[in-house]
Structures are given as structure tokens and as C-alpha cells.
Nucleic acid binder design. Sequence first.
DNA 1: TTGAAAGCGCTAACAA
DNA 2: TTGTTAGCGCTTTCAA
Lengths: 358, 358
Amino acid sequence: MKETKPSGGEHDDHGANGSSVKPSLITDVASLANVSTATVSRVINTPDVVAPETAERVRHAMSKLKYRPNMFAKGLITRTSRVLGIIMPDFLGEFYTQLSQSADTAARERGYHVVITSDTRLGSADAVQSLPLSFLDGIIAILTFPDRKLTKSVLDLNMPTVLIDSDTGDLGVDRIRIDNEPGAKQAATHLLEHADASDCFYVGGPATNFDSQARAQAFQDVISERGGFDKATQIRYGDFSVDWGNEWGLKHLKDRTNCITGVFAGNDEIALGIMNAARTLGIDVPSQLRLIGFDGTRLCDIVRPTMSSVAVPFDHIGSSAVELCIARIADPERSVSTIPAETHLVIRDSSVPSDQAS
Amino acid sequence: MKETKPSGGEHDDHGANGSSVKPSLITDVASLANVSTATVSRVINTPDVVAPETAERVRHAMSKLKYRPNMFAKGLITRTSRVLGIIMPDFLGEFYTQLSQSADTAARERGYHVVITSDTRLGSADAVQSLPLSFLDGIIAILTFPDRKLTKSVLDLNMPTVLIDSDTGDLGVDRIRIDNEPGAKQAATHLLEHADASDCFYVGGPATNFDSQARAQAFQDVISERGGFDKATQIRYGDFSVDWGNEWGLKHLKDRTNCITGVFAGNDEIALGIMNAARTLGIDVPSQLRLIGFDGTRLCDIVRPTMSSVAVPFDHIGSSAVELCIARIADPERSVSTIPAETHLVIRDSSVPSDQAS
DNA sequence: TTGAAAGCGCTAACAA
DNA sequence: TTGTTAGCGCTTTCAA
């Protein structure tokens, strides 16, 4: 309490809009506490190496000046930010939402922050220049489409990266591999319990989507075993939307009132659309139509009848991705690994014969 | 093509895991292109000021070396990142999802990036130290609870900030003010068209939540005008969840089979819960129960019957927040403004008398 | 236990 | 149109 008055004020800010008062620097804190900047830096980064009373004096100065280290300067030296970026196609959909939440929790436990951003810009030509992604210590990218350019953009970032759910072959990158097969096979098998093989359908997302295809394949493997399978009609692709499900349902369900139809949808939203179409057509779920979705999002428990769906282990995926990413950051030389994320069928009301059929 | 070989390689990376090869620097590019670092910097930031052929040469060197400016160093000087942060309570829920999407779009158009992060850590003691938020050029915070500590934490960041939907008085900060009143009054009025005032209920979120309260107040204003209003039973608080709606419905709807009940829910999820409870109890929506939600999320069109709801203009809110934030960044001295976001009722099937009442 | 000083990679005057 | 040079705010040897 004897040096020059530093720049940061101690009285309340007038405006409270940021950036009106300029932030105090480490030098301000140093002079207020009568120490060198090195010491201030030490109480922040390696507290145990500085004398308790000195540390206390410094801490007092820091809070008095509302000192906040400049992360640009800090990062320039340490080359880390302790923030992980999650790149996803868009912010919409339960899928991404639940994944973000679990990744955030996992990151937090390990002293990292997570920020979410959409990848739309990644595909553009000047992506490399425009992306302020170099702030990040690592990247977790959810690449659902086999978009080579996008994948390459991400890989070109040349930083610790974890890919989720992409169809990319072995690019020598850590990956969380969502295994569609077990859940999809369980779903198909479940459908077959009450419906003929020829009455079962797969209504998927985009034909180019890897998951969409994998689920279709598993479905086909199970169904075709029973014979009477016609790929052209029993497997259809559209997009991952309620509208597509509704459209398919309206068109293909109306003349199926005197048999039990089994439908396995590419995701929950499509399934919901089909459920709505059935209602419109007066077809009862589950007595006339057995329906199973995919992803196991919150939607399944919200709608009535509740919807059977193949659950994707979001928590496991989110936390594994974070762990893998942090492990890679810690040791860039460690061998590449792929962590499988198994799916499994969760049966709810939309696929089991109701006791009181109407 | 005559200088020292720079560090970055031109052959493919072996591993493809980031950080194995060290990134090339501006000096590498400069020497490869036979220019000074200043010139390289110019082709990146002010291209028109450098000779076309020189620029071309530099650009070639950049792509050959996969040069990527170090944002830490750049930010240290320019003090900007062109990244805006959106802070929200959590990643869950349609509300935040749709808001993020519109903010992202708006930011993109203006050359900014948006990252989403949850605010859980903001409230903690060491928040100031642990938050790597100083990277951001601005912050958009969604503060739904009157949490003074959280609000203060955000404001203490002392950077361009826009608050959305908080109940904070005038803190001299830019704000997007969601106006619950018009929509809520329309909802209450709509309910009154077919239900007695004493048969109308508001089932809100947390009692401490500002929006929850504002909606309740508007509801009360309209309903109590008709007389026979008992606040204690007709206004109930819980949380913004499907479960709470279901719980309320199961408890309070069962002995209301011989009158038309009108329910205005605090958000769409609560409304959905109530809708499910009604179904469980065999109460028909909308003939016996007129139901209106709040937020106007995608859920409203997904469920059957489709749900009437007070729409919140997400697009407007997201883009306005981004605009306001960018304006503040551009001119820290500009006067503080509050942009209202009006809500309005969107009538769907859950609140209108069905033609064929059962 | 602390301080002095040398940068981290980049941009921005100021010259040329 | 281009180059030289001085930092941005912080961390980190190296000495003391």
C-alpha cells in the first residue's frame, strides 16, 4: 500500500458495460503487492512455491484490482487453454443436446471447459483461415456424414482430435465408434415376434448417412433371414425428420389395416412422424403398428404411447470422447484407439401388444 | 524457392493425430515466400495493400506450409477473437437449442463465431480464476433465475455483455427482454372462451423464476377479472419439467370430468406432462381439457393433439442479442438499450373445441 | 523464496 | 509497396 495507483479502479464501475474500464494487468497487481510480476504469476500457477504471507498479499491485490489474467498472453506461452471444442452439424435435436451435456460434465471434472460450435463453416473454402479454433486444446467432432472434405478440414486443424460416429476408415485418429448393429438387430428381432417378415419396414434417414445405412443393413440381415424380404419396398431412406416419417406413414400405412405392421425408424423423430401418421389414419399403435425408434432421446418418454427405441449411450460417448481427447493432449504419441459405444433396444409401449386391443 | 527449409513438412503427416508435427510460423511463411513477416501479415489482414504477385506467392507459401495464424499471439495484439460466447443454464431443452441456432446464424453473417457454454461454473467461488472466458469478444447470457451472484459474475467479467430474459433491474447493460405478458394474457383470454374462470389453472415452473412469475401474474390479471378466482389453488409452481406437469395433472385433474378445465402451463414440457396425465386419466384434450403451453418449441407440432402454446420469438431474440453484442463491441460508449421480444399465442389443437367431441 | 530479463508469434507504427 | 522494429501481457529460466 505504498506504490503508484494502478489503472484498475476500486470504486464501482459506473456503466457496467464491459470494456469501459480497462482491465488491470499483472504489473498492476505486482506493484500494489510490492512484488515482481514473476511472483504474481507464481501465486497463480504454483502457489506452494511462494511464501504464505506474500501469497496472501498478492491475492488481496488481485481481488482488489479484479485482476484477470489475459488468456491470450498466457496461451501464447503455455499453448493451452483448457478448453475443448465440440463440433456438431447443428445445434438442433435431442441427440446433440444430450451428448453436449455429458461431455460438459466429464470435462468439468477434469478441469476443462467445453464449447460447442456448429461445423457449417468448416466445409467452406476459407475455413482454415476463418476458424478461430486454434484456441482449443482439442476437438471432438461429430461427423455423421461421410463428408471427406469436412473430415479433412477437421484433421487438417492438426490438433488433438476425437471423431464420433463417423464412417471414416482408419485415419489414425481416436474415435468413438457408435455400434449400430446390436441395437438394430434387437429391434428387428423384436418386430419379428409379432409381425411377418414381409410386414416389416425400415424407414431411415439419408441414404448417404453412415448410421442410416448401418441400421438398414442390420435390419435387413435379420429380416431377410425369414424370407419374403423385398429390399426396394421394405427399406426406405429420407431424412432424419418428423416430416419424413409422417410422409412415409401417410403413404405406406393406409392400406395396412388388416395385418400387424412392424416399423423400425432411423431415429426417434422419424418414428414420431410415423406415429402421428398412424394416428391420422386411425391405425392403432401398438396393436396394429409396432414401432421402434432410434437414439432413445427424451422424446420417447414424452409421447404417448411411449416409444420403444434403440438407446445410444450418450453419457458414455460424451465422457469417453472427452477422456480420449484429454489423453491425447497429455500424450500426443500414445497409440490411437477406438472406443466402441454399443446400442441396445429399450422396449416401451409402442412395440408391445397392448392387453386391451381396441 | 531459395531459402532455408522451414519447419512444416510438405509430405503427408504420418499419424494424423494433431500436435505431432509442430505448426509453421509466420516466419516460415515469410522466408519461403521471400518477404518479411509484415508482408505475410498484410496478405492476411489487409490484402489490398500488397502487390498481387507478392500476395500470390505468400498465399502459396501459406498453403504449402499449412500455415495457421496463432490466435493467441494475434489476440494478444488485436484484443479480439471474433468469438461470442453464449452462456446458458444447461444444454438441455428445446428453448436453448433453438436460440443457439438463430444466434449462430446471425453471428455467422457478421463474421463472428458463436460458442455455447453452460454457466454452472460461473456461480462457483473461483469462477473468476477458472473461466477462460476472456477469449471472447462478447458474452450473451441467458439468466432465467434472479441469481444475483451469477449475474454479478457475468457482469464482473467486464466485457461487452447482453443479457437475455433476466429479471435484473436496470444494471446498465444491454438486454433482450422477453415480454411474457401479451402472450400470457392472450392465453388466459383464450382459455376463458370456453372455461369458467374458476376452472382455469396456471401450472408454472419454479416460483422463484422470473418468467414463471410474470406469466402467472398476467394469467391472474385476466382470470381474476371474471371473479371466482382463488390464487392458492389456481396458481401452482413446480419446475419446468414434464414430470411436474404429469404430477400436477394426476393430482388435480381426476375429479374434473364434468366440466371444461383450462390449463395454462409455464412451458411446453409442463404442458406435455399434463397432457399425458390427462390421457392416463381418460380425460380428453381438448374437449374436456383446454391446454396451452409456453415457448412454442418443436414439441408442440410433434405431439398429438398438437399443442397450443405461447410462442417466443427465438430467431428475433438470438439475432438481436448478437447484433446488440456486436454493436457494443464496436462502440463501448453507445447508450444501453433494451430490446423487447414479444410473445404471442399460437393456437393449435389442444385448446380448441374439437368438432367431434367424444 | 524472490527478482530480472528474455522471449512466445504476431501486428502496427514508422521508415524506406 | 515493403521492411524494420517495438512491443501486446504473460511465463519461465537463471541468478541472487
